[in-house]
Design a binder for these strands. Structure first.
Length: 799
RNA sequence: GCCGAAGUGGUGGAAUGGCAUACACGUCGGUCUCAAAAACCGAUGAGUUCACGCUCGUAAGGGUUCGACUCCCUUCUUCGGCACCA
């Protein structure tokens, strides 16, 4: 009754596997296509998100193969990370054994979906043959001053007992376990990604085929802001206090300045002042508050007067210096000029503390003369007032002119500030790449020599779950010989953040077994860049930014010739159930494996592609899955009743479908591609198909439902696999219509339709139309003012 | 606050200036059957009409156009990102 998906899928998976059907070989004569999906963490089980991501990629890979491209479609595992350590603590296994077991299970699940991976290129980042090159890259960065150690206050997750990168703190909590992040003073390794900030921002312009959303997220994250650093002077000592502003046009309205509580000048300026004790208490209290509390916008801004004054360099006015929690030491200079009339935060603060205000921008559409006319700051554009030589100038123009004037007179300096910070990569964990550094009492920080790589993780480490990294407790690991002076030394016990591993794996896939470097230059030049990258939008900032950074670094090393790793990017939408993300805690998970057992992998693939366009969220629907299964059975039955010859009507529909499906798959519009395959199937039910027509349908379906199509292809008498076939092309001659249906409108409303020869002249058409009965009742005897004809489509009469 | 995306039948969605709701799910009806399932065929935006039809209808309002889901302006809602960023 139903086609035997179980037998068919097992049969073809075996055949593809034993025939190494998807092995990719460097062939300079052929045009390459590198298709990559973000590799998974090997949890052991795939979820619907994986199924969706990898199905989208698989269709594209198979489609490109049929079109004759030399396709590289690899898969591997992002295998370092915390769950392996947790499992080790819980189950008394070793992270290495646990991870490799999970990889095996996951491979099996991926194979059950029929994905066309070149398994010979598989990499796992936890293998020393891979992480050796992490260490190599780290040392290259160290040599160039791009990897450095710094003591600072860092984000610390008390639950994971490790540091976190800025990028890993989400809403003040740990990205993994959501525990509230604390600040801790530690010596940590950083990568100087900020050296690449200009290129990382500028090169976003090259990425025409990335989603707008991702580009804007990256650009926000890098956070370039152009302005002026203005030097106010301390009234008493004439010492400079730099402040940063993007609104130089408002400088004449700066009526006080504010320092961050952590500002180094604070202690100096309050010394001996009556306010000293009060300010010190305030600073102490604020510094204890976590950043989360301080930066939540609903908290009222607090501040204290320092007792000192500063000189505004543009008018030599003495303005009070305040200390307030709404100014952050990390951004700009840690000090601001406050313009209460034209900045809302300053406005609220000034009202609260009775500070002076001065209007310096006059709105174009209203008269603003007295401060009490303001109920909030005016931050729009206008004309300069109370602004000395800039009086009357439009503020946008003044912004530039004032900045230039300041630059010339030395009052200030045109500057650019960035939000992007260096990347903290030290993690106090065991299951990661050891940082290849040795600390010697005599020689200091000594990099491990290249010939000593890899620094291997010790197999035996105590996993107690208590305090600190297990690596620090392995004596044989910690104790090392200094590479320089050979004296007794100590090895770095921190490991690298796992985002390091995934920042270059796409290059490793080009030559996964290469032993003389992270990748073979010639192979990378052939296969890279990745033509199409596919993954979740949750990696829009972290992973993609780091990968771009590494690629630029490799270019600077002379290892590759390109700046950007990924030509096209597709971020697939999430899979929802009942409007919510599938998750264990919500208990709404649908297990792919059980769906494969019930309907087969082909049905699951078909449903995933049909239910929504790839970029949007997909609502899981059991009945939709059944519908997909019904469709496949409907197609299956066609082969039992093929005609000798297909009629011309059928051929026309077929070639229309070929065009539509080809165009849609090209554009990743799989849902509409499938819709037209359904229409084609419906047409076959109406008109009947011969072997030729049906073969084309099977071929068009094959990237989507590969096992199903292989089997029918064989049933149709083909000796070779459908993978060796070529994608069909439509015959343009068959798409030319002899007659066309013209829609007839009167005053823009559809009133009638008429069938006419496709090559009819406009005059002849007009003549025919005016004889149309339905139209006559609408026109009656009103004069026709206008006659608009869109060839082969529509005519609109205006009466 | 700033940046980005989106809002279409009972449901998932299609149409990017030219027949709104393709394709599917669901529902209803029919054929087959002792019966059911499966399969096949048909109907299915709302209002109104015996009916041919007509009117309304793509978050709301306005505009451009012979013609707007599509372009422009205003507003609302939802989702995502950044954010006391000076």
């Amino acid at each position: 009754m139903f086609y035997n998906f179980k037998e068919i899928e097992e049969k073809w998976q075996k055949a593809w596997d034993s025939g190494n059907a998807f092995g990719a070989r460097h062939d300079a004569a052929r045009k390459k296509y590198y298709l990559l999906e973000m590799f998974p963490y090997p949890s052991g089980k795939i979820h619907m998100g994986h199924v969706r991501n990898y199905t989208i990629g698989d269709v594209a890979a198979r489609f490109k193969t049929l079109q004759g491209y030399n396709v590289l479609h690899p898969m591997g595992f992002d295998a370092f990370g915390q769950p392996a350590e947790n499992a080790a603590i819980k189950n008394k296994t070793k992270p290495d054994a646990w991870t490799h077991k999970c990889i095996k299970e996951m491979e099996a699940e991926l194979k059950k979906m029929g994905f066309s991976y070149d398994w010979k290129r598989e990499v796992a980042t936890c293998d020393s043959s891979y992480y050796k090159w992490n260490q190599w890259i780290f040392l290259k960065m160290y040599e160039r001053g791009l990897a450095y150690k710094k003591a600072s206050s860092v984000n610390w997750c008390p639950s994971c007992e490790t540091t976190l990168a800025n990028e890993e703190v989400i809403d003040g909590g740990c990205w993994r376990c959501h525990t509230k992040v604390k600040l801790k003073d530690l010596e940590q390794w950083y990568l100087k990604i900020t050296d690449y900030k200009e290129r990382l921002l500028e090169d976003l312009k090259q990425l025409d085929n990335w989603p707008e959303k991702v580009l804007s997220m990256q650009s926000n994250w890098i956070g370039r802001s152009q302005g002026v650093e203005i030097y106010f002077r301390l009234k008493e000592t004439n010492e400079a206090i730099p402040v940063f502003t993007t609104r130089a046009d408002t400088i004449f309205g700066a009526t006080y300045i504010v320092l961050a509580p952590e500002h180094p000048l604070v202690a100096k300026i309050i010394k001996g002042k009556p306010q000293e004790k009060e300010v010190l208490e305030f600073v102490e209290r604020v510094s204890k508050e976590s950043k989360v509390v301080r930066t939540s916008s609903d908290v009222k801004k607090e501040g204290r007067f320092s007792g000192s004054y500063a000189i505004n360099p543009v008018n030599n006015e003495a303005v009070p210096i305040w200390i307030a929690d709404y100014v952050l030491m990390e951004y700009g200079t840690g000090a601001i000029m406050a313009v209460p009339t034209h900045d809302q935060r300053d406005f609220l603060f000034a009202r609260e503390h009775n500070l002076p205000m001065r209007i310096v921008i006059q709105p174009n559409d209203q008269r603003l003369t007295t401060n009490d006319q303001l109920s909030e700051a005016y931050d729009g554009d206008g004309v300069q007032v109370n602004s000395a030589q800039f009086e009357g100038m439009p503020n946008q123009e003044a912004k530039i002119k004032i900045a230039e004037w300041m630059q010339e007179t030395g009052i200030g300096k045109i500057q650019t500030h960035w939000r992007l910070r260096d990347w903290l990569i030290s993690r106090q964990r065991y299951w990661g790449t050891p940082i290849p550094i040795i600390y010697c009492k005599k020689c200091g920080v000594v990099p491990v020599p290249y010939e000593d790589l890899p620094v291997r993780l010790p197999v035996d480490a105590p996993f107690t779950g208590e305090g600190g990294s297990p690596l620090g407790k392995v004596k044989e690991f910690v104790e090392a010989e200094c590479p320089k002076c050979k004296s007794h030394a100590r090895r770095e016990t921190d490991t690298m953040a796992t985002f390091f591993d995934s920042s270059w794996y796409f290059l490793r896939f080009c030559s996964p077994d290469f032993e003389n470097g992270p990748f073979d230059k010639a192979e990378a030049e052939y296969w890279m860049r990745v033509d199409q990258y596919i993954g979740g939008v949750e990696h829009a900032i972290l992973h993609l930014l780091y990968s771009r950074f590494f690629t630029k670094f490799f270019k600077d090393l002379g290892l590759i010739s390109f700046d950007e790793p990924f030509i096209r990017l597709l971020t697939q939408g999430m899979v929802l159930k009942d409007g919510e993300v599938m998750s264990k805690s919500k208990g709404n998970i649908v297990d792919p494996d059980s769906m494969i057992k019930k309907y087969g992998a082909d049905t699951l693939r078909l449903f995933m592609l049909f239910a929504a366009p790839p970029e949007t969220e997909l609502e899981w629907d059991d009945r939709g899955l059944e519908g997909a299964f019904k469709f496949l059975n409907r197609v299956w039955r066609i082969h039992e009743s093929l005609k000798e010859e297909a009629d011309s009507q059928m051929l026309k529909i077929l070639h229309k479908s070929i065009k539509k499906v080809t165009d849609d798959i090209q554009d990743f519009k799989f849902n509409t591609a499938i819709a037209s395959l359904m229409e084609l199937t419906n047409a076959i039910y109406q008109f009947g198909a011969d072997k030729g027509v049906f073969s084309k349908l099977v071929l068009l379906l094959s990237p989507i439902v590969p096992h199903f199509s292989e089997e029918l292809w064989q049933i149709l008498g083909n000796k070779e696999s459908i993978l060796k076939a070529r994608w069909p092309e439509h015959d343009p001659a068959l798409l030319v219509e002899q007659t066309v249906t013209i829609v007839l409108q009167v005053n823009g409303k559809v009133r009638s339709k008429i069938d006419v020869p496709a090559d009819i002249s406009e005059d002849k058409l007009k003549e025919l139309i005016l004889q149309d009965d339905k139209l006559k009742t609408w026109i009656q005897d009103k004069p026709i003012k206008k006659f608009i004809a869109i060839p082969k489509k529509l005519v609109n009469l205006v009466v």
